[in-house]
């Protein structure tokens, strides 16, 4: 219906133009809209600066014969989670030459425990598994 109306409108326009003597040949009606106007706007985005890059500790060649600390974050502030015990049981069963030690971090889950990190380092800890957030 829309196309039919458009055609009638074009015909009417041509008729008017011819009647007025403006053109003597049939005109072509272009139904395409005129090119839409381009706008330039300011950019709200912020440039985020990357943090200074810091290297991690070198990885271990193997866990065999090493001492791994399993540190419970005390996520819910009460008991911690038994998953660290399950991970320890897995090592005992599957990799018995890995020595694992369980530790409960002091304070809430957002509180740092530098004394524990030092204790792990001083006692020859080779690796740390931290958990669990969530």
């Amino acid at each position: 219906m829309k196309g039919k109306l458009l055609s009638l409108t074009c015909l009417f326009a041509v008729t008017v133009l011819i009647t007025s003597g403006a053109i003597m040949t049939p005109a072509v009606c272009n139904p395409a809209p005129s090119k839409e106007k381009l706008i330039t706007v300011m950019n709200p985005a912020i440039t985020e600066m990357p943090a200074k890059q810091v290297s991690l500790a070198p990885r271990l060649d193997t866990l065999r014969g090493k001492t791994i600390y399993l540190v419970d974050l005390n996520y819910e502030g009460i008991n911690g989670t038994p998953v660290m015990g399950e991970i320890q049981a897995w090592f005992t069963k599957n990799m018995p030459d890995v020595k694992t030690l369980l530790k409960l971090k002091k304070g809430s889950y957002i509180a740092d425990d530098p004394a524990l990190w030092k204790e792990i380092a001083d006692s020859g800890g080779d690796g740390v598994i931290l958990g669990v957030a969530g």
Binding site: L56, A57, P58, R59, L60, V83, W117, K118, I120, A121, G125, D126, G127, V128, I129, L130, G131, V132, A133
Partner: peptide
């Protein structure tokens, strides 16, 4: 302390 760590 240069101790490798993994977090869950």
């Amino acid at each position: 302390y240069a101790i490798p760590t993994v977090a869950l």
